[in-house]
Design a protein around this nucleic acid. Sequence first.
DNA 1: TGTTAGAGCGCC
DNA 2: AAAAGGCGCTCTAACA
Length: 784
Amino acid sequence: MSKYLVFDRETENHEHRKRFSSPFYDKNWTVALGWKKQGDKQCSALYFPTKEDEKPLQIDKDVSILVGHNLKFDLLFGWEDPALKAFFKRGGRIWCTQYAEYLLEGMHPDSHMIAMDQIAEKYGGRKKVDAVKAMWEAGFLTSQIDKDMLLDYLIGTKEEKRNSGDIGNTELIFLGQIKRAMKLGMMTMIQARMDGLLATTEMEFNGLKIDVPEAARRMKIMESELAITEKELESYIPELPVGLTFNWNSNTHKSCLIFGGTVKYKKSARYIDPKTGKYARKKATEEWPLFDGEPVDPKEATIDKDSGLYFIEDNCEQGGGYTCGMEISGSCEYCSCTGLDTRYQDVFTSGKKKGAGRFKKVDVPGEFKTKIQDFFFEFPGYTTPDPKWQGALTDGQGDSIYSTNDEVITELGSRDIPFLKAMAKRSALVKDLGTYYVRYDDKKKDYKGMLTCVLPGTHIVNHSLNHTNTVTSRLSSSNPNLQNIPRGDTSEVKKMFISRFDGGKMLEVDYSQLEVVVQGMLSGDKNLCQDLRDKVDFHCKRVSAWKKVTYDEAKKWCKDEKDPKYPEWKVYRTNAKVFSFQRAYGAGANLISQYTGMPIDDVKDLIEAEEIMYPGVTEFNDSVEKTVKRNAQAFKDWARDGKVYRRGHWQAPTGTMYTFRSYDAPDYLREKGVTDTFMPTEMKNYPVQGTGGEIVQIILGRLFRRFVETDNYGGLALMCNTVHDCVWFDFMPDVQEELCRDVKEIMESVPEVLKELYDMDVDVPFPVELEIGDNLYDKQVIHI
DNA sequence: TGTTAGAGCGCC
DNA sequence: AAAAGGCGCTCTAACA
């Protein structure tokens, strides 16, 4: 009799290396562990006041499935527990209620990363103790929360007979989800994906080893290149007013510099007080000496050193005296006065201060007030923008900002603008340094970039592989994102990824054009499947259909460098390649023509040729569209505009459900009275993208089982990462042969796996390519 | 001071 | 025919 075991941890919640409650930080541990085994009348829990008290989850032999919400988190905290290892060894499986909910909801955006509290009630559970959540939100550590309160939160209160809380809710959700999954025909698919979740848990646990000295070396080189480039760029910036610093990161600045425009900048400066019409000033008072009862500005008086009193030497009213610079002696030459009249400051005549000078507090104009104000500076510009580069933002004057992205800069290449190359180089360096190395953010006083996630000592970076964050059921990666590491032809970043083993290697295994294979599989198009079996070069095939020559001719002329036709036909192939990628995303003829520079009629010819060659693909796309439209239901989108839209779905043969929403119709349909339409591009792409992702994930599950079986090849090979159609491994050469053979066999066994799980008859191969190297940059294709 | 939208760009 | 799909990170600019 096999049973389920629901469990959950409340862990110490320090953030470390961008990871919330990181299981890889030694200051975090399981503060409270709760569980309920199938058949138990109530939940159980253990409380561990310190890390030293911590005990592992006990998993009885009759337990066959572990259940939890966001289960990867709880698994990582005990990933090396012998009990858990033994559990997997005997074939134990998992069910993550967060992941299952996301799949059951057809990956609807509202179901991404969904919190338990948001679904507990719909499965008959109840909301949990708010006070605990409030304390976390207020920044308390889990260990600072009252033990009883925490346990109430975890397993329910005494009034709830200790059969609620996180654990009780999870059980109810699990049982409800099983029913839903059976009804929707999604049970097998969910189970298979759960094994994929185990694989990514293993990958997160293993992480990637970073060659920190190499990274530091590269960084130094890049930083000095950056300094040189920025120095060069400086000379192209016109003289700027104080307070405005040109920022090469700012799209506004770049657009204004290149195309002309007004940059708004802020500076602290004086301003006119509307009440007085003069510059605003601060209030101030001064002690002024009194002369005959009238206060006089001390600046106009002199201090008598002996008495400490102020005195004034009044000038002759007739204009004589100091003002004319004349020496005064005796009488004034303009009149009969005796030159200067010295008057002394008033003094107290009695009391304590008798004899001391009298003063009065007088309001005087204080310092000028300043405030941060907008200033404007107009750049003349170097060239005129193409209107199609116009963006949504405006400059200081309200004129349009134009895009200065890579595409535009390339297009500007033919115009004589001297700094474009340096600017592009700077952008590339800043992107690499800021995203994949490390860069100090002056404003936030914080470091940015992938290397900030590297653990000290081990130099391992543990990324997150997220299962519930996309609408297509693909995975995503974050903190850091290890699914967008620049390829070898873009940057040398991949050199940083090395083996953690002494003398070890890295292995990357890719599916060859997975999405084309999936397109063939889903559509069942006879020609496409045959071409996949024949391993034709699809780009040459498209060229042959487009230029009306045979496939063999096209292939020779496109690929044989010695052929006289090669230079011309190579370009055809490149265009066909771009065409096929664009087409996969559903782009129309217009856009492809614009993007490739091919005449629109040529693009239309290619599209037509495609449809004649692979009619099954069009039929498949049409059938998805029909299905979605047929089952669509209206809903009011309050988050958007409160208007009525529709949502429909299409279910793949594996059981995966894709949901689609409608959007405001484009103008040409609006004129015909249509208010909302589904996006044909989404409907074409989701099934292919999603099924490709799904296949990789279930294969990851198979790989995980093999790694469990072999104890990670005796501890000499590790699964590390996956990027949609590829898998990364870290291994010792000792096990290379066995590892490569297994990985290739398992990854290429897609048709067998799909037959076994879903009784699908798949007649296309899923070939993979293996590459090995000392790092993920310098790798060689290997053949087995 | 922190949040958010937009742009840009890395990957598949 | 007509609407280029999916992510996450960094940066700026605007706003509360």
